[in-house]
C-alpha cells in the first residue's frame, strides 16, 4: 500500500504533480464524555488546560484525516495537498471536525 503524503502547501519538495484527482474530505462528529466533563467542571474553577478534551480532539482529527486518506487511496493518489481543517459545534456538547484537500499523483 503506498504511503500518502499530506501537506498544506501546494507542492511536495522534489516532486512534480502529474495528475489531479479532485477533492477529498473526511469528517467526524464527536461528543464529550461524562467522566471527562466532571473533571472539566473542576478545571473550570481553577482554569488551565483540559487535557481530556485536548486528547479527544486530537484523536478525532486523526480519525477524519484517516477517512480523507482512505478516500485519496481509493482514487489512486499518492499525496493530498493544500489541506484545510474546519471545526464547528453542532449542538451543545458535540462538535464536528472536517478536513478537506486535493488528491494528486506526484512523481
Amino acid at each position: 500500500m503506498p504511503n500518502i503524503q499530506i501537506s498544506n502547501l501546494e507542492a511536495i519538495p522534489g516532486t512534480t504533480i502529474t495528475e489531479h484527482l479532485g477533492m477529498v474530505q473526511g469528517n467526524t462528529v464527536r461528543a464529550k464524555h461524562v467522566g471527562r466533563d466532571i473533571m472539566a467542571g473542576l478545571k473550570n474553577i481553577v482554569g488551565g488546560e483540559l487535557r481530556g478534551y485536548t486528547e479527544l480532539l486530537t484523536d478525532s482529527r486523526e480519525e477524519c484525516m484517516s477517512r480523507m486518506i482512505a478516500q485519496a487511496r481509493d482514487l489512486g493518489a499518492n499525496a493530498v495537498l493544500n489541506i484545510r481543517f474546519s471545526t464547528s459545534s453542532v449542538s451543545a456538547g458535540a462538535s464536528e471536525l472536517f478536513v478537506y484537500g486535493t488528491a494528486v499523483v506526484v512523481e
Binding site: P13, G47, E49
Partner: peptide, 20 residues
C-alpha cells in the same frame, strides 16, 4: 527543501472562576 511533513498542535484551555 527536500522533504515535508504535516505537523499540528492543539490545546483546550479553560478560564478560572474568578476571571469568568
Amino acid at each position: 527543501y527536500n522533504s515535508s511533513a504535516f505537523v499540528t498542535g492543539n490545546v483546550v484551555i479553560s478560564i478560572d472562576y474568578f476571571k469568568r
